[in-house]
Nucleic acid binder design. Structure first.
Length: 553
RNA sequence: GUCCACGUAGCUCAGCUGGAUAGAGCAUACGCCUUCUAAGCGUACGGUCGAGGGUUCGAGUCCCCCCGUGGACGCCA
């Protein structure tokens, strides 16, 4: 909420108190921005919401409130009742323009807010197995998760970016055997990769790296010893590649938690013992089961198989307990769509261990389908395998990739149009926004720069007011996008901000020697727009270029 | 079969947790560069919000029931 909205809310609250002698609950008073300018700058539906409490016609309630509000709201030019009982506010243009100095003073910090109240929140995302390169689903999850964390940090949450490494199970054994087979093959030996081994080019490349370090040392040793070595090496090097790809993609994690480490620290056994002790389990067919149906799951789940090994679930429960132990009170996971059915059992486990149902929230990342010229692109032309995050970025660029992934809600299937993402034309929303930024910088370069002024009384045209109002909304948008974990809202905001700017640019010549005062005020408005646009782009990890070369077509 | 998402303009999607006459972009048509970057601006065209019922001052949004699409339903990870 910005200052104007805060002031309106508190004025409405006291008006309600005085008129009806009731204290409105938090959240009852809602301030909206009407889509239509003819309905004012801000609006509230409080009169309708009070009908049930006060037992009065909304028109009568609104009339009483407006009488009080006329005296209270000093920043309003006009307050009117409209439609079924909306109260609409027209804010003084000078008040709207105050935001320019707020933005200039705050700089990079504009948009920062404390709606998170320091809540300790741990966001786990990507968490791809270290057995191969990251793919499109991971790219979507990485962009989304990283933007969520940027939003949370900007909104006063204490947020940790975590990557959970599944490095203790069967798939790592397969990786070890795959690298071993490639290693032997490179010495001309007969060796076949396991059926469910890893056939990608990354395994061949990693094998070459290892060979450079150790030569033929593992050609003649026992298979057991060799596979153990290659398992470790393979995992380490695959992980390093993943980390490098993510870093290149502007996603950096604060914390990498290894499943193997959780096992080694005995956390899995401890959780298992505790669950048995708490009576959450039973034995059947030689296995130990978790009574997850008692906590909303549709089936009970095996924790320890009859062969004595744990299932995937058990170390993951330990992983989640470890998150709580480190003092995080809110856990957020971003999982691929194929993990959908896994949510109820993990939530069940958390509740069984004494935590709240909503202490863990899981957002599902739906499938990505690459499309080019209306045709689905399934495989990389170069490798014949699934397309990796690197190939995607090399093709369309980091900015385009990140923006596209984040601009659509994650819970819907995404058709990613390669041609569109690659195009440097007006069809591409990334360039539309970046071009606005470059245009602003270009104008500012031609002047002595924008200065903070004491008055913006000349900024009264429709285009200027639209821009001011939108800049005013930035902080509330950031808080809302953080709360609802919807970075796509930032993209909507960016598009609209760019649109308001371009429209303003088209309507007015900004540098006008004959009107120095107006020019100075407009330059300050441009500077505020520039800062807001840059901060918004930064929230989704997209760069703000000061120049864009014009391409000939 | 059971469970979970989703269904909005020709296409891709918004719709601020129930608000006013449902919005953008692209595509299509027509205007605008002797003026700060035309990667831009403006105008027009485009809708039974999948179908039906319910809840209330008010439903694209909440509930029920169909239809359609996708996903999940292992002592795999």
């Amino acid at each position: 909420m910005n200052n104007i909205e805060l002031e309106l809310t508190s004025n409405i609250e006291s008006a309600v108190k005085e008129c009806f002698d009731i204290t409105p609950e938090p959240g009852l008073i809602m301030i909206e921005i009407p889509k239509d300018n003819s309905k004012g700058d801000y609006s509230t539906n409080i009169a309708m919401r009070l009908t049930k409490i006060v037992r009065q016609n909304p028109q009568i309630i609104a009339k009483a409130l407006v009488e009080k509000l006329q005296q209270k709201v000093k920043d309003a030019d006009k307050i009117e009742i409209a439609g079924p009982g909306f109260i609409n506010f027209w804010i003084k243009k000078t008040t709207l323009a105050n935001v320019i100095n707020t933005v200039i003073d705050a700089g990079d910090d504009y948009g920062k807010n404390d709606s998170g109240h320091g809540l300790r929140i741990l966001v786990e995302y990507v968490s791809a197995n270290p057995t191969g390169a990251l793919h499109l689903g991971h790219a979507r999850g990485a962009a989304w998760g990283d933007s969520i964390c940027r939003l949370l940090n900007k909104s006063g949450y204490d947020c940790l970016r975590e990557y959970y490494i599944n490095d203790a199970g069967h798939q790592i054994d397969m990786l070890g055997e795959s690298v071993y087979a490639r290693y032997l093959q490179s010495f001309g030996k007969e060796a076949t990769l396991p059926e469910d081994g890893y056939h990608g080019p990354d395994v061949v490349e990693i094998t070459e790296e290892i060979k450079q370090d150790v030569g033929d040392k593992y050609v003649n040793c026992s298979k057991e010893e060799a596979v153990k070595f290659f398992r470790h090496q393979g995992k380490r090097r695959e992980l390093k590649r993943i980390e490098e790809d993510l870093k290149y993609y502007r996603c950096e994690f604060d914390s990498w938690v290894s499943e193997q480490k959780i096992v080694d620290e005995n956390r899995v056994n401890i959780v298992m013992d505790k669950m048995v002790e708490m009576g959450l389990t039973y034995e059947e067919d030689g296995a130990i089961w978790f009574k997850s149906t008692e906590y909303g799951d549709d089936k009970n789940r095996v924790l320890k198989k009859s062969d004595g090994f744990y299932t995937y679930l058990t170390p993951d429960i330990a992983n989640h307990m470890y998150k709580f132990e480190r003092g995080y009170t809110k856990l957020v996971n971003l999982w691929g769509a194929d993990h959908h059915g896994y949510i109820p059992r993990m939530k069940a486990a958390i509740q069984a261990m004494g935590y709240g149902k909503d202490d863990l929230e899981v957002d599902i990342i739906q499938m990505v389908r690459l499309v080019e010229n209306g045709q689905e692109v399934k495989m990389s032309k170069r490798t014949g395998n699934a397309i990796t995050i690197r190939e995607l970025i090399d093709d369309i660029g980091i900015d385009s990739a990140r923006y596209f992934f984040v601009s659509r809600a994650v819970d819907t299937h995404l058709d990613f149009d390669l041609g569109l993402a690659r195009s440097q034309t007006n069809e591409n929303p990334v360039y539309y926004a970046q071009y606005a930024y470059a245009r602003i910088c270009s104008i500012l370069r031609q002047t002595n720069g924008a200065k903070r002024l004491d008055s913006y009384d000349l900024l009264v045209s429709e285009k200027e007011v639209d821009l001011l109002k939108h800049i005013n909304e930035f902080t509330s948008m950031v808080a809302d996008a953080a709360l609802t974990r919807s970075p796509n809202k930032v993209c909507n905001y960016i598009q609209k901000l760019a649109q308001y700017f371009h429209s303003f640019y088209g309507a007015h010549k900004i540098i006008d020697e004959t009107q120095p005062e107006l020019t100075a005020q407009r330059l300050a408005l441009l500077e505020a727009t520039r800062i807001t646009l840059k901060n918004a782009l930064d929230l989704v990890g997209v760069s703000a270029p000061e120049k864009m070369e014009r391409t000939e077509d």
